[in-house]
């Protein structure tokens, strides 16, 4: 039985048991399933490879959940004129992996995604994905602001904190996210201190006591030698 059939059965069961759905359809958009987990080709022990292969063997999110996530993560981290959003940055693949790698979060994630649907149903009589984006944001506003959210939504607030955290971290550790962030490192270079104009902007300066002591980039390839008192002389 394929996953779509499963999904229909699951949803039908839900319909029959607890919720009264009005005017909703079990048709959902089919989205591409996440790519298989990437197994790094480097420095992994046999035990680590076993864990990675086990993760690769099953899929956590079903297609209905993925459809919701694709909408949600782009609401959390959208594209703008100069940068892509979370969806295009590949955050879905990261979410799929990290849910399996850190199973403690699975219940909160799964429960939260369903909460969105039955809350949408109670408010608008439709699945979360079938309401307007304005209505979607009205639901998210119930749970997106922890300091002012109603106590009865506390579980869903925790779910949204988790989703916000993971979406943000997935985005800002992606190639697109790093570019947007402006991170400049992870490349061989020679550190010669904070740029002068930056120090001036922040009103700090180097301690003159150490100016002669600090490493001089032009001398770093000269082999170190010390005198009898331990002073560096080359």
């Amino acid at each position: 039985m394929d996953r779509r059939e499963n999904l229909k059965l699951i949803m039908a069961g839900t319909l029959a048991s607890s919720l009264v759905w009005t005017g909703c359809s079990t048709e959902t958009k089919v989205v591409q399933a996440p790519v298989k987990a990437y197994i790094p080709p480097y420095a992994r022990t046999d035990e680590e490879l076993k864990i990675l292969r086990e993760i690769d063997e099953f899929t956590f999110f079903n297609e209905f959940e993925l459809a919701k996530l694709n909408v949600l993560i782009d609401i959390i981290i959208p594209s703008d004129e100069n940068s892509v959003g979370a969806k295009e940055a590949g955050v879905i693949d990261f979410l799929e992996f990290i849910m399996k790698d850190q199973p403690d979060n699975q219940t909160l994630m799964r429960g939260g995604l369903i909460w969105l649907d039955f809350t949408a149903d109670e408010a608008f009589g439709k699945y979360f994905l079938e309401i307007t984006s304005e209505n979607q944001k009205q639901i998210l506003d119930l749970i997106a602001y922890p300091d002012t959210a109603e106590p009865r939504f506390q579980n869903a607030v925790l779910f949204f904190n988790l989703l916000r955290n993971l979406t943000a971290t997935g985005y800002f550790t992606s190639q697109a996210g790093l570019t947007y962030l402006g991170y400049r490192g992870n490349t061989p270079n020679v550190w010669n201190g904070v740029p002068q104009e930056v120090m001036e902007k922040h009103g700090v300066s180097l301690d003159s006591k150490y100016l002669e002591v600090y490493l001089k980039p032009e001398e770093r390839d000269i082999t170190a030698q010390w005198d009898d008192n331990g002073n560096l002389i080359t």
């Binding site: 550190w191 010669n192 201190g193 904070v194 930056v198 120090m199 922040h202 700090v204 300066s205 180097l206 150490y210 002591v213 600090y214 490493l215 001089k216 001398e219 170190a224 010390w226 331990g230 560096l232």
Partner: peptide, 17 residues
């Protein structure tokens, strides 16, 4: 106690702050 040191790197911005 001091040792036979190599030159230290200049501080980062937050370290100066």
């Amino acid at each position: 106690p001091d040792g036979l040191f190599l030159p230290p790197p200049k501080p980062r911005l937050h370290e100066m702050m």
